[in-house]
């Protein structure tokens, strides 16, 4: 199993991710429904437009106006996710920072992430059940297990440095890291998630940057 997850699977994941992304972007731009011209909501001023675009994609302004609780939750979730991904890149690239700092930050945001995912999952059984689909539950449960296995690795006391493994992957000669049940689960589920990203709702991580521009595009009439 270690063999499969750390040698073949990364390449399968990579292929599924890239080909899926190309397919999805093609579909996204092809299948649109034309909308009617509107009064520009933001402004005719390009700086104002840019500002309004950024407050939407980075600060989630519409959610802030509509649902403060969801906005806070969403921010907690996305910010911790972003920092966790950045932390993984740091580890893969072998960039050294103070280990105690890395551990504290990683554990803190790992816990924040887990808590926000659990609350998001509870929401799906309550107020937003009416719009939820199977996909919503599956992804959130997957994230719970990814977060749990990741935190278990942290707190099991082992030290993980996969920078050597990362470079062995790039040179197409993957060297299997030492066996660890949590590492195995974590790497397997995370790769499932990455491979799935272009095919489902997670595509919003790319599409949002496009659709958020649309309300700003209308010129005067």
């Amino acid at each position: 199993m270690m063999d499969f997850v750390f040698t073949s699977l990364p390449y399968i994941t990579f292929t599924a991710f890239i080909s899926g992304l190309i397919w999805r972007i093609w579909r996204f731009f092809r299948a649109g429904v034309p909308s009617y011209p509107l009064f520009p909501m933001a402004s005719q001023d390009n700086f104002q437009k840019f500002k309004s675009y950024l407050t939407q994609v980075l600060l989630f302004a519409p959610l802030f106006k509509n649902d403060r609780k969801l906005w806070g939750l969403s921010w907690m979730f996305h910010l911790s996710l972003f920092l966790i991904v950045a932390g993984h890149f740091r580890m893969f690239l072998g960039i050294r920072i103070d280990e105690r700092l890395a551990f504290t930050l990683g554990s803190f945001f790992g816990l924040v992430f887990l808590i926000s995912v659990v609350i998001l999952l509870f929401r799906r059984f309550g107020e937003v059940r009416v719009v939820s689909t199977l996909e919503d539950y599956v992804i959130l449960i997957l994230l719970v297990f990814i977060a749990l296995s990741g935190l278990a690795m942290r707190f099991s006391g082992n030290h993980y440095d996969l920078s050597a493994y990362a470079s062995s992957l790039i040179t197409l000669s993957p060297q299997i890291p030492e066996y660890d049940i949590f590492l195995l689960i974590h790497a397997f589920l995370a790769q499932l998630l990455i491979a799935y990203l272009p095919y489902g709702k997670l595509f919003h991580s790319i599409g949002a940057f496009v659709t958020s521009y649309y309300p700003l595009r209308w010129q005067n009439g």
């Binding site: 649902d67 969801l70 599409g207």
Partner: peptide, 20 residues
């Protein structure tokens, strides 16, 4: 400008529920 499929980015967050 091309028209995109908006339904493709919806994550069913439920913001629209209390907007409507």
């Amino acid at each position: 400008m091309a028209e995109v499929d908006f339904a493709d980015v919806c994550v069913r967050c439920g913001s629209c529920l209390r907007a409507c």
